[in-house]
Design a protein around this nucleic acid. Sequence first.
DNA 1: TATTGTTATACTCTATAACTATA
DNA 2: TATAGTTATAGAGTATAACAATA
Lengths: 170, 170
Amino acid sequence: MTDAAPSYVPLSDHPAFLLSQLGSHSGYRFTDLLAPLGIKPSQFGTLRMLAANDGRTQQQLCEALNIHRNVMVGLVDDLEKRGLVERRKHPADRRAHAVHLLPAGQELMARGVAISIALDAELLAPLGAEDQAKLLELLQQLSVGNGLTPGVHPGMTGEPGQPKPCEPDH
Amino acid sequence: MTDAAPSYVPLSDHPAFLLSQLGSHSGYRFTDLLAPLGIKPSQFGTLRMLAANDGRTQQQLCEALNIHRNVMVGLVDDLEKRGLVERRKHPADRRAHAVHLLPAGQELMARGVAISIALDAELLAPLGAEDQAKLLELLQQLSVGNGLTPGVHPGMTGEPGQPKPCEPDH
DNA sequence: TATTGTTATACTCTATAACTATA
DNA sequence: TATAGTTATAGAGTATAACAATA
C-alpha cells in the first residue's frame, strides 16, 4: 500500500470526498440563498430553535446548536439589532436572558424554512423520485451510524474539538 | 408557506442538511487522520497532483486544485521545508517554478492515499455492500448533476467566489 | 464553587492589492 | 500588456481566558 503506484482511484470515486464536496456545496448554497435575508446559517438555526421553543436562554441555544456561548452573544446581538429577537428577563434565573422571537423574526424564519426546502429540491433534482427517497434513507443511516447528533452540524463553533474542514482534494 | 406553522420537518429529514453534516464530518475526519503525517488536506492534494504529473508549475497546481496562487506559495513553502517537494527551474519559462515530488513526498502521499481509502470504509461502514455501491452511484450523479467539477473541492481558497460554508442547522 | 452572559486577546484563514521578473 | 511567483495588509472566524452577576 505504500508502493510506488498506490490505488489511484479518481477522487470522484471516493465516497468520503464526494460527501465532503457535496456537503461543502450544500453549505455554500444555503449561505448564499440565506444572504438576501441578511442572516447567516447559524442565525437561522437560532431563529428556528426559538420557533420550536421560545424563550430559551442563550446557554440552552448554545447546547442545542453546538455553538460556543461567546459566539452566541454576537449572534443574538445582531438578531436583536435587527428586531428579530428580544432579550427578556428570565423568570427563574436572574443570570440568564430569555431570548424571544419577535414577529419579524418569525416571518424571516419561515422564509428560511422555505429556502431550505427549495435547496433540498435543487440538490436532488438530478435524481428520480425513487432514488431521492433512497438517498435520504442512506444519508440518515450514515449520519446515525457515524455517531452524528441528529440535527446538529459539526461545523459549528462548539467547544474545542476539531481543526478546520477543507479537504481540498484528498 | 410563510404561515405561522411552516413545514417543521426535522433537520435530519433534509437531504441538504444531511449532506452538509456528513460532508463536514468527512472533512474533519480526513483532516484529523492526516494530522499525524504533518500535512493538511490541501497539501495532500498538492502531493497527489504531483504524483500524477510531476514538475507542474505552481500556477498549474492552483488551477487543478482551485487554490489561490497566494495561498499556494505558503503550501509549497511548507512542503519544501519538510523535504517533500522541491522547486526547480522551469525548462521553458524562467518566471515559473517546476514543483517536483521528492521520495519522502512520494511516500507520504501514498500514506495519505491509504488514509483516504480507510476513511471511505469507515464512513460507509453502517451500510451493506449493496447500499454502499448504490450510495456511491447516487453521490456521483448529484456531483455531476449539480455542476461540480469532478475531483475539485469547493471549499478551497480559489478566486473570490462564495462566502463561508457552515450551515449550522438550517 | 459553579454557571450565565460578556468582553478582550490572540491566532488562523481568507481576500485584496501590489510588487518583481519575466513573457 | 499579461503572467508566475511573491509579499503585505486587512478582514473574518475561532479559541482562550478572564470578568461581573448570580446560583
